[in-house]
Amino acid sequence: MAYKWRKNLACFSTYRVLERDDRLDQFEEELVPLDKSAGKYKVSYMAFYPDDGSPKVKEKAARNIAVKFIRFTIKDYKPKKEETSQTLKKWHGELTNLFKDGDKTLTDIAEVQDEYCKFKDEMED
């Protein structure tokens, strides 16, 4: 079943890391509020996305923003690894594939975050 944009830390962290001025600052909260519609926000709308670039340019841009995205996620939200077989390299690879595809959305990114991260709202006290 397709992943849904909802109130959890996977979606919240995805939104905040991309939105905050002192993080990746790809869009403004005033124009893209954190509600249901935010999940439909496309990668191609983001400031970093090279609209008219070749696939290689898109891959390079994606690969590099994916590193920063992971770093801020770990720094700000301190998630646990979801499964022991996962690695930072695989996580980075999956995010790179999303960031280079302009049709992907915040929901798609949040799905990968949920797959690789156990956030505080999923941890037992």
Binding site: V67, R71, K75, K78, P79, K80, K81, L88, H92
Partner: peptide
């Protein structure tokens, strides 16, 4: 590929620059 991307409690460690 080593297991050093989590700490002793299973939290991801910010070591992305070196890991990727």
């Amino acid at each position: 590929d080593s297991d050093s991307d989590v700490d002793e409690n299973g939290y991801w460690v910010d070591d992305v620059n070196k890991k990727v």
